[in-house]
């Protein structure tokens, strides 16, 4: 397969996953804010959301004050926000368009449909209901796209690149969500009621509340939640699960063999797997936990780079 095509498939999947995750974070916040008791709490919540879905610093450099409508607009629609929902979905469509000969027709149609319906979305003076509907459409589009991939694609090279893009994006986002929540917990008073609230929102933000509650009714302690989000290998949004699947997919792609060109990639993946497996939340301080999460996010960036170099997704290509 062409490197350019592999790169487009990888980024198509990442962009879809990113849009879905960010939409879901915004969805959670739109509900949360209804119960926020004062302006200060509301602002703090928005800070968190911005730190998760874009970059808080970048937003603040352009917008000195927090206004709910402005933030929603920025996260959902703003052209200048590289990671706005509309941008992610549009990049995904562009990537799909550049690989139309590789992907199922239906996958293209799903992304194209979203794009064609965009002009009907009001980007200013919107109601909350309209935004909720828009977020739902994103979620449904992402899920339908994944459904088409799962139900109709040959388990070949293009499929692998799509899946790797998705798992990497998800692992990174999960780590980022935890990181932001930990940061908040560290800054604020360590009251037990508050703790409960942090871990609850962490679970909601990673879309894992329902799954967690089935395993651990009705407790909400830090250790369990962290174990669940970081190392639960049956929870499809945990860091462990995502990284295991990246490893498994690359293994299949390489038919279980390690060649000189893929050696670095395998080494790095094994290192990360070890680091995740040996993570023990019970004897960690909040600082240590945050170090771990920061370290893991850096690892995600590294693995992305090594992955790209291994499959020539980045220039230059040298003859061997």
């Amino acid at each position: 397969m062409l490197s350019r095509v592999a790169n487009s498939l990888f980024w198509m999947a990442r962009n879809i996953e990113r849009a879905e995750n960010n939409a879901s974070v915004l969805q959670v916040q739109l509900i949360n804010m209804l119960e926020a008791d004062d302006a200060e709490v509301l602002d703090r919540d928005w800070e968190e959301v911005l730190e998760i879905v874009v970059s808080l610093a970048e937003y603040q450099s352009q917008h000195p004050h927090f206004k709910t409508d402005e933030i929603i607009h920025y996260v959902a629609f703003a052209d200048k926000n590289y990671n706005s929902l509309i941008n992610c979905m549009t990049y995904a469509r562009e990537n799909a368009r550049a690989t139309r000969d590789m992907i199922p027709e239906r996958l293209w149609e799903v992304l194209n449909k979203f794009y064609l319906e965009l002009p009907a979305i009001r980007r200013n003076d919107f109601t909350l209901q309209e935004i909720q509907d828009f977020l739902k459409t994103i979620t449904m589009t992402s899920m339908t796209a994944q459904g088409v991939v799962e139900s109709s694609m040959i388990r070949g090279v293009p499929y692998s690149f799509i899946k790797i893009g998705k798992w990497l994006e998800r692992a990174e986002k999960t780590a980022r969500i935890l990181n932001v929540i930990c940061e908040k917990a560290r800054k604020e008073k360590q009251g037990s009621v508050n703790h409960h609230y942090y871990w609850l929102s962490a679970l909601r933000l990673v879309n894992g509340y329902d799954a967690y509650i089935k395993e651990h009714p009705p407790t909400m302690d830090a250790e369990h939640v962290l174990q669940f989000i970081i190392e639960e290998d049956r929870f499809p949004r945990s860091i462990r699960y995502c990284m295991d699947h990246v490893m498994e997919t690359i293994n299949k792609l390489e038919k279980g063999e390690i060649n000189h060109y893929s050696e670095r990639l395998f080494q790095m993946l094994e290192t990360i797997q070890q680091e995740v497996i040996s993570f023990k939340s019970n004897d960690m301080s909040m600082e240590e936990l945050m170090d771990f999460l920061n370290h893991f996010q850096n690892r995600c960036i590294q693995i992305g780079q090594i992955f790209s170099e291994t499959y020539y997704l980045v220039e230059p290509v040298e003859i061997k």
């Binding site: 397969m1 062409l2 490197s3 350019r4 592999a6 090279v157 499959y311 020539y312 290509v317 061997k320």
Partner: peptide
């Protein structure tokens, strides 16, 4: 003429 693929040229 070669094309650039994920497995080289």
């Amino acid at each position: 003429v070669y094309m650039k693929t994920i497995r080289g040229l």
